[in-house]
Design a protein around this nucleic acid. Structure first.
Lengths: 356, 356
DNA sequence: CTGAAAGCGCTTACAG
DNA sequence: CTGAAAGCGCTTACAG
C-alpha cells in the first residue's frame, strides 16, 4: 500500500502539500524566499513520498544536466581508480552523477567517440585524466562544444583550462630529503618518460634537495628511464655497475622502483641494507613486494573531488571564444600529497659491498 | 556560420527535411515503415545538422533512459578496470552511457547511496560486480525499484537474477593440466577465501584434473588461504616445509602466487627450476615480477559487454513480484577465459633440492 | 507510409 | 513569499 508503483512527481508533492509545483521546486533546490513553515511542510511530504526529482526532467527544462563526464584512455591505469572514486563520491554528495567514457586511443575518430557523450548527454562538465588531458584534438572538440573542463595533472603548465594537480617538485624534494636525512650522499636517480612533464618536475625536486644540502650529483648517476619496469631494471644495472655505486636510488615511479628492487636482489644486494630505494605513486604493487617501497601517494581522490567542485561551482567555465576579454582566469588547485615511508629505505651500511 | 551555437533539435531536422518530427523520430530510431526516399532525405539532414537526440528528452518522454549503472565497492579492485572498459565500449556502440557508482561498504546506508542513482537517474539497468553483487540489501533495493540487474560472477549460483561469469572450474583444470603435462605430480594448492565461491570452484577444477590423471592429492598439500599476499607467504611456508615438498604450487589467485614466489626466492629456491607457480587473474603485477606468472586472464571486458547486451535487449528484466508465473527465466552467460603461460612454470628438476 | 496532438516532469521568466 | 503559464525536446498512442 505504502509502496507506490510509480515514483512520486513534483505534482504529487505539490498537491499533497497544498502548494504549487513552483514552491516545491524552490524547496527542493534550496532556493531562498520560502516561508519556513511552507518549507517544512513541503519537506515533510517529500520525505513521505520519497520524492526525488528526475534528472531527465530537470535537464530538459533547465540549464544543468547534473551529469559530469570522466574521460580517460583505455589501458585504465591504476590512476583512474583513485580519481573515479573521489569523483563519484563528490558527485553523489552534490546530487550529480558521473558518466565514464573510455576512449580508444588507436581508433582514429576520437572526435566521434567524444561526440557521442557530448551531444547526447550534454554534461555540465568533463574531467580529463592524463594522457587524454593533453590531447589537443580532444581539448579543441570540448572547447568547441562549450563544455567546461578540468584537467587532472596535465603536462602543459600554462593553459587556459582549469586544472588540478599535486606538487611533484615538492614531493620529490621530500623523498630526497628523507634519503639524505638517513645518511645517503650518493643517490642515483632514474628519470621518467621524457615526454611527460612529471618526469622533469620530479628530477627538479631531487636536484633542489641535493643542492640544498650541498651534495653533488654526478651526471653518471642520473639515468633516463621511461616509467616502465624494464627501464627500472636497466637503470639499476647502469647505476649499480658504477665504480662507486650509489647507496640509494630514487626511481621516478613505482614500476621502475620495482625494477630496481628486483635487479638489486638478483645481484645479491640486500634492500635496504645495501641499497635504499624510493618510488613514486604508491601503486598497489608497492606495498606487496618485499621490502615494501617507500613512495609518495598521489592524492587522486582528493584531486578528483576538487575537479568536481570546480565544475559544479562553475569556476571551470570554458573560455568563451566570443568574449575572451571577460573570461574568468582558469582555476588551478594544488592538492597535498602524502609521503609513505616503508621498509625499502634505511641508513646506508658503513662500507659498500655492492657490485654489479 | 556553419557552426550553430545551439545544438540542432528534432524540429530543426523536420523542418529542413520537410517532414514531421514523428518521421524524424522513426528514422533516428531505426523504426520500420518509412519510405526509403524519406529515410534518406532525413538522414541527409541529420548529417548536415549533426543532429543527435538529447538523452534527457528521450528519457523524459519515453520508457528508456539510455543509462546503465555500474555498481562496485570502494577499494576499486583491478577487477573493475576491465569490466568498466568492456561496458563503456559496448554502451557507446549501442548509444547508451555508463554511470558509475562507487559504494562505501562501511557507510551503513547503502540503501541511501543506491537510492541516489536509482530514483533520480532511473537507469535502464544495473551491472553489479563482486562483492556488491552478493549483497542482499542492494539486491532487494534494486528489485523493489524494478531495475533490471546483471550480476558479474556472483557467489550464489542459483539466482533469480541474470548473471555473467567465466568457468572457474574449467580454468583451474586447464592450469592443473598444464602443470601435469610438464611432469609435475606433487602439486600444492592454496585455496582462496572460504566465503567466496570462486575458491571452491578453483579447488574443484584442480581436484578434477588431478583425479583425471590418477594423481593423489594429500590433504597436507592443500592450504587454506584468503586471496591475500601474506596468506600466499604462509601457504608457501606450509607447503615447502613438508618432508616431501611439492614441485609446483597452484595459488588460487595472483596475489597469493606472488606471496609464494617471494617466499620461494627468499628460501633460495629458483622459480621455475625448483618450483613452478601458477596464479589466477592475470593481475598487473603478474607480468611485472620475475619470473612473470603463468595465470588465467578473466575475460572481464567481454563479460561486461555481455552484461550490457543483456540489459539493452531487455533479457535481464527483473522478475516481477506481481506476476511470478510469467517471468522469463534469468539469463546466464558463461564467457571464455584465456590461459596465459609465462615463465613461472617449467618441467620439474630431476631431484628436489627444496628445503624450508 | 506519414503526421497532429498530448504529455513526460521539471525549470524559466514573469506576475502579483 | 507564492503561483500560473509556457516550454524544454523528445516519444507515445492514435488517426488517417
Amino acid at each position: 500500500m505504502n509502496k507506490p508503483v510509480q515514483a512520486a512527481t513534483i505534482t504529487d508533492v505539490a498537491q499533497r502539500a497544498r502548494v504549487s509545483i513552483k514552491t516545491v521546486s524552490r524547496v527542493v533546490n534550496r532556493e531562498p524566499g520560502v516561508h519556513e513553515e511552507t518549507r517544512a511542510a513541503v519537506l515533510k511530504v517529500v520525505a513521505e513520498l520519497n520524492y526525488r526529482p528526475k534528472q531527465s526532467a530537470r535537464s530538459l527544462a533547465g540549464a544543468r544536466s547534473f551529469l559530469i563526464g570522466l574521460l580517460y584512455y583505455d589501458p585504465s591505469a591504476a590512476f583512474i581508480g583513485g580519481v573515479q572514486q573521489g569523483a563519484t563520491h563528490r558527485c553523489r554528495d552534490a546530487g550529480y552523477h558521473l558518466v565514464v567514457e573510455s576512449l580508444e586511443s588507436d581508433a582514429g575518430d576520437i572526435g566521434t567517440q567524444l561526440d557521442h557523450m557530448v551531444s547526447a548527454l550534454r554534461p555540465d562538465g568533463m574531467i580529463l585524466t592524463p594522457p587524454v588531458c593533453d590531447n589537443p584534438t580532444v581539448l579543441d572538440a570540448l572547447q568547441a562544444a562549450r563544455i567546461p573542463c578540468v584537467l587532472i595533472s596535465p603536462d602543459a603548465h600554462v593553459h587556459h583550462l582549469s586544472q588540478v594537480r599535486m606538487d611533484d617538485v615538492l614531493a620529490a624534494e621530500e623523498l630526497t630529503n628523507l634519503l639524505i636525512s638517513l645518511g645517503h650522499t650518493r643517490i642515483g636517480f632514474i628519470k621518467g618518460a621524457a615526454d611527460q612533464s612529471a618526469s622533469g618536475l620530479r628530477l627538479q625536486g631531487f636536484l633542489q634537495a641535493m643542492k640544498a644540502h650541498d651534495l653533488s650529483v654526478e651526471s653518471d648517476l642520473i639515468y633516463q628511464g621511461n616509467f616502465t619496469f624494464p627501464s627500472g631494471v636497466e637503470g639499476a644495472h647502469h647505476l649499480l655497475s658504477r665504480r662507486s655505486p650509489p647507496t640509494a636510488v630514487f626511481a621516478s615511479n613505482d614500476d621502475m622502483a620495482l625494477g630496481v628492487l628486483s635487479t638489486a636482489q638478483r645481484l645479491g644486494l640486500s634492500v635496504p641494507g645495501d641499497l635504499s630505494i624510493v618510488g613514486f605513486d604508491d601503486s598497489p604493487a608497492a606495498s606487496l613486494v618485499w621490502p615494501p617501497l617507500t613512495t609518495v601517494r598521489q592524492p587522486l581522490a582528493e584531486m578528483a573531488a576538487a575537479a568536481v567542485d570546480l565544475l559544479i561551482s562553475r569556476e571551470a567555465r570554458p573560455t568563451d571564444p566570443g568574449a575572451e576579454g571577460q573570461a574568468a582566469p582558469a582555476a588551478l588547485r594544488v592538492i597535498g600529497h602524502e609521503l609513505i615511508v616503508r621498509a625499502s629505505t634505511a641508513a646506508p651500511q658503513r662500507r659498500s659491498v655492492s657490485r654489479a
